[in-house]
Amino acid sequence: MNRRTVVKAIAASGALMGMGALMPRVALAAWNKDAFSAKDQASAMNALFGGSAEASANVMLKAPAIAENGAVVPLSVSTDLADVESVAIFIENNPTPLAAQFMVPAGTDADFSTRVRMGKTTNVTAVVKAGGNTYSATSEVKVTIGGCGG
């Protein structure tokens, strides 16, 4: 075995390992590092859904109009769309806009509540992936005291 074949073999196994490492990302459930670390909403959405979402009245986002404390902003997202695969929450002006992503296994209602941090007054967008398409609802939340550090 000469040097060239060894290098080739290493390169091939490296490529295989790389593929192996990428595989979980293809699965819907994996924690999407690119999406969660994206610094702006468009790229976070792109990383998570591969594009932007269409505004829809079928997505219900319940958020306060004014949040006194940005550290704890209660949000609820629900939808009456069929075949819901996942639900994600984006907070536009946060350092990393993607806040959370919920999978919707069969038998589970597409209705989730959580509480998030908001740095300042901004739009909150709920995105629902249903039947291969993405739909969104946006609502502005005014924050009087920011929730990041302080």
Binding site: A99, F112, S113, V116
Partner: peptide
Amino acid sequence: ANLGTAVSKNPYLAF
């Protein structure tokens, strides 16, 4: 659920 850092301290989740 996949959570990011924007989820509040002492995370609350309902479903």
